[in-house]
């Protein structure tokens, strides 16, 4: 039994045009993706901007309407439950990318962190305060900060306030949308370490959306690579990084800067090779619309989007 199953998920946005604002077409932001998450593991969703990775995450949690497909959480279908305050809303939380815009600047930390508690649990004022302070302590902020406003904190601290809010209801799944992209490397290290710690402590499952492959490799057990709304490859972290099969994945992996300056020339040569291969074999990997094919298994855990044989 998978923890979260996403089956042929599609999210299309209408394009309005003309003077009457009629729908003239659709942007297929997510165009049929299927994957599943295992409990206690971290699943990485990777892609360039516009690949549909964030939309996928937002659709799962109900922030985007689903056009077609099914989402099952712990074997219960939750595709259309989003509007009601179901258990699901408690069990799945989100960490947003930008800690500067995801916290209401006019609210005190106490109100920010307590908001999910107020929605789902009826606590007395003093109980609530205690819970908020416990949460802040858990994320490494002093309990006295409950009266402060977001602007009084640094980027890393703000992101931890966002995490405190996300774990307030003891969720089972956290969707982290580029949680460290806006942060400096040393602060990034702090947030990543912390996310790993609470994962063990609270037995959390993560869906980690990102584009920094170094971070993804460090955090994830399994990775799905998206391109133009579809998966091009899925596999364990090891499979993706040491044995990428799809030309798009190869190109992505080749583009990671190496922190060893001695390998510079080697890397330039390697990238050139991959680029040549990409150009020559583009038609073998993408259909006539430039989209990826359906995923085909190459091993038990490793799936690659290739045309069907024959």
């Amino acid at each position: 039994m998978a923890f979260l199953e996403v089956e042929d998920l599609k999210v299309h946005f209408p394009i309005k045009g003309g003077i009457f604002g009629r729908t003239v077409g659709h942007v297929k932001a997510v165009d049929g993706v299927t994957f599943s998450l295992e409990k206690g593991k971290t699943y990485g969703l990777v892609g360039e901007s516009g690949s549909g990775k964030t939309t996928t995450g937002r659709a799962i949690i109900g922030l985007n309407n689903i056009t077609a497909g099914k989402i099952k959480f712990q074997d219960k279908e939750i595709t259309n439950l989003h509007k009601s305050k179901s258990e699901f809303r408690k069990d799945v939380q989100m960490i947003f990318q930008d800690p500067y815009s995801s916290l209401n600047p006019k609210k005190r930390v106490r109100d920010i962190v307590a908001e999910p508690l107020r929605n789902f649990e009826s606590l007395s004022k003093s109980e609530e305060k205690k819970r908020v302070q416990e949460l802040l302590e858990l994320v490494g902020l002093s309990p006295e900060s409950i009266l402060k406003y977001p602007h009084e904190f640094s980027g890393g601290q703000r992101q931890r306030i966002g995490i405190a809010r996300a774990i307030a209801l003891k969720p089972k799944l956290i969707i982290a949308d580029e949680p460290v992209s806006a942060l400096d490397v040393s602060v990034q290290a702090q947030v990543l370490n912390f996310m790993q710690d609470i994962q063990k402590e609270l037995d959390l499952t993560y869906m980690f959306i990102g584009h920094d492959l170094g971070v993804i490799r460090h955090m994830c057990d399994q990775i799905g690579i998206m391109y133009k709304g579809r998966f091009v490859e899925e596999g364990t972290t090891d499979e993706i990084f040491t044995n990428p099969q799809h030309i798009y994945t190869k190109r992505l992996v080749a583009a990671i800067p190496d922190i060893d300056p001695k390998k510079r020339d080697e890397l330039v040569k390697f990238r050139e090779e991959v680029r040549m291969e990409y150009e020559q074999s583009y038609n073998d990997y993408f259909d006539k619309d430039g989209l990826a094919y359906q995923l085909q298994p190459v091993s038990d855990t490793h799936l690659v989007a290739l045309p069907e044989k024959g």
Partner: peptide, 23 residues
């Protein structure tokens, strides 16, 4: 040295990242 230690590195997989104390 702290900066270099705080970036995820494939050769040191499974290790904790170094965090520079304070801000």
């Amino acid at each position: 040295r702290s900066l270099l230690n705080s970036i995820p590195n494939a050769e040191r997989e499974g290790e904790k990242l170094h965090v520079i104390q304070g801000i």
